[in-house]
C-alpha cells in the first residue's frame, strides 16, 4: 500500500524553523513505521535523521511523536496508523536534527534519583534473598527502557523542564520498593522536592504513552504515598 508521511524536519545548519516535509512510500500494512522511515532514508532522502538501534522495542531509541502521540516507531504498525501519517520529534527537548532530540536533560534527571541498588550492609555469604512477593512489588517498573515517551508526553514536564519527569520516578520506584535496597534516604530529597513527585498532576498521559505498558501514574502515586508514610 501507498502511504503519505509528513515528517517534521529541522536542519540546524540551514533552518531557523522546523518544517513539515511530505514523502510517499510503498509499504506493507504489516510493516512497522520504522520500515517506512528506513525506506525513505535508504531509497529517497539520505539526509533524513532519526535514532534507531535494536528495532524490536527494547532499546528505547526510536520513541517519537506519531500521529500526535508518543510511540516507538519499531512497535507501531502502518495498518494502525492509516495512510496519512505525521511523524515529529519528542516534545519538550531541544531538537538536534530532524527527529533526533537532545536526551541529556532526561538522563540527568534519571541519574539524580540514583537508579542503582544502594546497600552498605556487609555482603551476605550467599545472595541477598527476596521472596516472590517482594520481587512482585516493583516488577512493573523494572520494564522501563528509558525511551522518554512518558516524560515527553507529560504536560507538567512541558510546562517546567526542571520537573524530573515520570521516567525518573519510575526508576526511583524500581529501587525504593526493592526489599534489598537501603538507599531511600538518598533518593527522598530529590523526589520530595518541588521538582519531584509533587509536580505530577495525575494527567495519565505517561501511562498511555509507555510502550512497555508500565502503569506509570500508579508508580508515581506509590512514591507519593511512600513519602507521605515516611514523613508522618
Amino acid at each position: 500500500m501507498k502511504v503519505e508521511l509528513f515528517i517534521r524536519r529541522f536542519n540546524p545548519e540551514t533552518d531557523t524553523k522546523s518544517r513539515m516535509v511530505r514523502y510517499e512510500v510503498e509499504v506493507e500494512p504489516t510493516d512497522r513505521l520504522l520500515d517506512a522511515l528506513n525506506a525513505i532514508k535508504w531509497y529517497q532522502d539520505g539526509t533524513l535523521t532519526f535514532r534507531k538501534s535494536c528495532a524490536h522495542g527494547i532499546c528505547g531509541s526510536d520513541a517519537m511523536l506519531i500521529n500526535g502521540v508518543n510511540r516507538l516507531a519499531c512497535k507501531v504498525l502502518i495498518k494502525d496508523l492509516g495512510d496519512r501519517i505525521t511523524v515529529e520529534p519528542l516534545r519538550g527537548f531541544r531538537v538536534i536534527k530532524d527527529l533526533v532530540v537532545d536526551m541529556e536533560p532526561f538522563f540527568a534527571a534519571y541519574r539524580s534519583v540514583k537508579p542503582y541498588l544502594i546497600n552498605d550492609e556487609p555482603a551476605p555469604r550467599t545472595e541477598r534473598r527476596q521472596s516472590p512477593e517482594e520481587r512482585e512489588r516493583f516488577d512493573d517498573t523494572t520494564k522501563c527502557i528509558l525511551c522518554a515517551a512518558c516524560t515527553t508526553s507529560c504536560p507538567s514536564f512541558w510546562a517546567n523542564e526542571d520537573y524530573i519527569g515520570p521516567a525518573a520516578i519510575v526508576n526511583a520506584h524500581r529501587f525504593l520498593f526493592d526489599s534489598r535496597d537501603r538507599g531511600a534516604a538518598e533518593r527522598v530529597d530529590i523526589l520530595n522536592s518541588k521538582f519531584g513527585v509533587w509536580r505530577c498532576r495525575t494527567i495519565f498521559n505517561c501511562a498511555d504513552a509507555c510502550p512497555r505498558g508500565i502503569e506509570v501514574t500508579r508508580a508515581i502515586q506509590d512514591v507519593k504515598r511512600f513519602l507521605l508514610n515516611a514523613r508522618i
Binding site: 541529556e104 530529590i190 520530595n192 522536592s193 521538582f195 514523613r231
Partner: peptide, 23 residues
C-alpha cells in the same frame, strides 16, 4: 527556556510540598 547547564538544581527539601499535596 533553554537549560543553561545540565547539572540539576539542588532540591529544596522540606516537607511543605508533601504537606500541600496531602492538604
Amino acid at each position: 527556556m533553554a537549560r543553561s547547564s545540565y547539572s540539576r538544581q539542588r532540591p529544596m527539601g522540606g516537607g511543605f510540598e508533601l504537606f500541600a499535596w496531602y492538604f
